[in-house]
Nucleic acid binder design. Structure first.
Lengths: 338, 338
DNA sequence: TGAATAATTGACAGCGCTCCCAAATAACGA
DNA sequence: TCGTTATTTGGGAGCGCTGTCAATTATTCA
């Protein structure tokens, strides 16, 4: 029982044009006619054919969300689910549907971006945590196709939305300083990545403004790995550190273990602050003070920006850096100090 | 620089028909002609318009994945991310793209299914964990539109793929029995849900076949809540239970806490088995023995079934019950007993 | 060599919709 | 009253593709 505009028109005794006007809520239709047509549409459960519409309007009202790496790599991290949810919600509010593409390590990046580009049934692309020099990004850019990156910016690429890692880290370290810790170290992320660099920079800025002289022994590079962070923390402890800012919660885990193994108490003898606010952070003993990224806002703002880009509306800024917030819990000793 | 089949045809000195044949890899094209056309396609970076194709073929090669409840409800549970990933991968293998719909508690079910149905740009629908009497399911069924449910079956609805909860639970309890526990209780899920009922049934079957007489005091209904499970476990302990099968890992957490608080040792004095194999299960002390659902297989099989349905290929069975596997770790005492 | 057959190619009618433009009708004003 | 303008309708081209059918060209075999 397939039906088109034509059939509705016949039933309502009008032309396709009029039905089209009603369907698209356009003016220039007599109120009585509109009612009659709407009734028939309801009765017959008519749904306009998206393909036909897209063919003529050249718009699909579909957004692609691309997640280059497999989700499974980050099981315990609710980052992608949360992001996906906020993007979907926001898109739906604007009457856009979401098409999802998840990368597969077994596939080359070029093939992956080919597949996406081949399926051109979308008006814009949201790319979550693109790897550096992602071919997809460059191809979209060259094609002048609307896209927005969610996550760390890449060299020369505009239209991204990310968290301001410098500000967030500076806040975290300032908090430690306010708590009167006097020898604060940091375990950074892999420093070939922008986010890790920025988090380190935030640490440095906070230290500097507090008048602490730069001490390279307090800065240890990690790689988001628990065991490695454990070792780093032991070194830091040997240097007489009484607090540490870890560039990720997983690394904070390693630091905590090192503190405990050294017979010290987290949040009493040694303050620890993490980054990410992973689900386990709040359930640790003591609960971990950490930085929470505004993932929902990230998704919403990126989606908004993309839709504006698609619809040719002005965007206020090409790039957005959102503010993350410190979740103050007990691992920094906030309850017992001050 | 928009281009269509027509332009390629002109450049290659052939007709649209021939280009179409090449693009769709159809026979009846001279090898030299094919090469020539393919070269031009490559040079010009031509991509056939999906909307136009869909309009005539009446097929989109798009699958919708519907997740009725918000993802955020289950942050630490990698179920949906994993499922999404396996579905996407499998679909892409068959050259289908994925459209994603995530429910929003604030929206009525009818509105939600309206929105999905209105966007008819897909050939079939995958519904993950549909609620009972989901209007979407019924509307798809009535419309004769291809769909497959992933998760608990609903009354009268065919075409679903799920885990066989009875078998899985029976295995779990059999394992406890083999470990010579003699008084095995269970904390069930909310029994108004099919899965919880089936897990209970598996428990009962294992108990019966082992010759244990039915003891209702050993069966306590939970609701997937840690605190509530803690209380239940205290009752069970008072009944002299030496092992318990929990219908979820979260409830196992409560049970473990109760055991510990009672001064008993998990996996030594009291055996505990969970269900789900959540990420935290393996990191508990002792690690939790639990049932792992084959989430990837669930996604793959469902996707396969849906595609067969769409393409009119025969399906072997209308419904599929997959086997979950017991992850034997230390909380059941497997290492120290036997 | 020529008729019969096979392989290759092209013409063209839609698919269901939008949107421009012209036609019909209604409302208005002097 | 009739011309004039505003409002409401319909006609029809065309979006880019597929797929049928007929036309053309190449191949085969007696």
């Amino acid at each position: 029982m397939k039906q088109g505009l034509e059939d509705i028109a016949k039933l309502a005794g009008v032309s396709k044009s009029t039905v089209s006007r009603v369907v698209n809520n356009q003016p220039h239709v007599n109120e009585k006619t509109r009612q009659r047509v709407m009734d028939i549409i309801r009765e017959t459960n008519f749904r306009p054919n998206k393909a036909a519409r897209a063919l003529v309007t050249q718009h699909t009202r579909v957004l692609s969300v691309v997640i280059p790496q497999p989700l499974s790599a980050t099981f315990t991290d609710p980052y992608f689910p949360t992001l996906l949810q906020s993007v979907t919600l926001k898109a739906n509010q604007h009457d856009y549907a979401i098409m999802l593409w998840i990368g597969d390590n077994a596939e080359e990046e070029d093939r992956f971006s080919d597949r996406i580009l081949n399926n051109s049934f979308f008006d814009g692309v949201l790319i979550a945590s693109a790897v550096d020099n992602d071919p997809l990004v460059h191809r979209l850019k060259n094609a002048g196709f609307p896209y927005v990156l969610i996550g760390p910016p890449q060299n020369g690429i505009t239209h991204y939305v990310d968290v301001d890692n410098v500000i967030a880290s500076r806040e975290a370290v300032r908090h430690l300083i306010a708590l009167k810790y006097r020898c604060i170290g940091t375990i950074t992320g892999a420093l070939n990545m922008g986010a890790a660099q920025h988090r380190l920079q935030g640490y440095k800025e906070a230290m500097k403004e507090a008048g602490f002289s730069h001490d390279p022994r307090l800065i240890l590079e990690g790689d988001y790995n628990e065991a490695q962070s454990y070792d780093a923390m032991q070194h830091l402890l040997a240097c007489g550190v009484d607090a540490v800012f870890c560039a990720s919660d997983v690394m904070a885990l390693g630091a905590i273990r090192a503190v405990t193994d050294a017979g010290l108490r987290v949040g009493v003898d040694v303050g620890i602050v993490g980054f990410d606010d992973m689900p386990f952070a709040a359930t640790l003993k003591p609960p971990l003070t950490t930085v929470r990224q505004p993932i929902n806002e990230l998704g919403e703002r990126a989606t908004d920006m993309l839709i504006r880009l698609i619809e040719g509306q002005p965007i206020h800024k090409e790039n957005l850096l959102l503010t993350a917030h410190l979740m103050v819990r007990q691992s920094c000793g906030a309850a017992v100090r001050v």
